[in-house]
Design a binder for these strands. Structure first.
Lengths: 143, 143
DNA sequence: GGTAGTGCTTCCAGTAGATGGAAGGTCAAC
DNA sequence: GTTGACCTTCCATCTACTGGAAGCACTACC
């Protein structure tokens, strides 16, 4: 199977497949003409990769998951551990973004949004010293 | 003011300040010895940048916000529009991550996490075709 | 005057995860 | 034999820095 067909069937773009080969996530054979030649197994690995990436796993996590995928002696606890730590990372990120969202929502609500220059958003950015900005700035912002 | 002091007072690392100069976000003067020489205004711009970045604005958004910062004829509606679209982007991201989180949480809940190989997480990744994986894969995954 | 230590300079490389494009070889059809 | 789709490699680009090497500049101390 050539790269184009594999790309279409796995949903992973050709460019990305070449990149995955470059970093050793897939190892297709080569035909006599130099074209990559993908066996069914490589197609499955690519579909696996596509799904894992769509779930937000990093490529290094994908590498580990792929090796567990091919390991019939694997323990599901290993898979679960990786997934759990990934989940924790995502939940941390959600909390961070929700905090940002609250702050921004508040600023937007307080801004008139008219043709005058006064703007609570600008004031927040300009006088960051008193809240949320790096501690080292606080002193110099009180002037 | 030398870069070290500005870094400490603005909370933006020296390395980052040099980078910001390279991409034209700040333009410090130079002393006779070749050192960067920051005026109070540049310090304020850096503090502004630090706060805007901590709110998740991209550097291009920061560039626009900085130009509005220095523009006494600005309209708060421009600032508000940028902030609103940034907020919308964050809220989209939160939704995406929450969807991921739900999926991962469900998978983790269904995985025994013992020393046997059977694992619903692996099954999801391996047979992605029926749900959530790229449409092009669906056909080839039903086998 | 020499030297140690800190701070400054530039330049280059690397991070994650691709993506875009140029230059060129291959293949099937007409 | 030529067009056009597909494949190849290689290099550059994106975001937003960060780390490190090599080499001046400045201050303090002996």
């Amino acid at each position: 199977m050539n790269i184009g067909e594999v790309a279409e069937r796995s949903g992973v773009p050709s460019k990305t497949i070449r990149y995955y080969e470059e970093i050793g996530l897939v190892r297709p054979l080569r035909s006599g003409n130099g074209y990559r030649d993908f066996a069914a197994e490589e197609l499955h690995r690519l579909a696996f990769l596509g799904r894992a990436r769509s779930l937000g796993f990093s490529l290094e996590e994908c590498r580990t998951l792929l090796s567990l995928y091919g390991d019939h002696e694997r323990s599901s606890s290993d898979v679960k551990a990786i997934t759990r730590s990934h989940l924790a990372r995502i939940d941390r990120k959600v909390s961070e973004l929700q905090a940002l969202s609250r702050t921004l929502r508040d600023l937007v609500a307080r801004c008139h949004g008219d043709d005058r220059p006064d703007c609570p958003i600008m004031e927040d950015l300009a006088h960051a010293g008193t809240r949320g900005c790096p501690a080292s700035l606080t002193a110099s912002c009180t002037d």
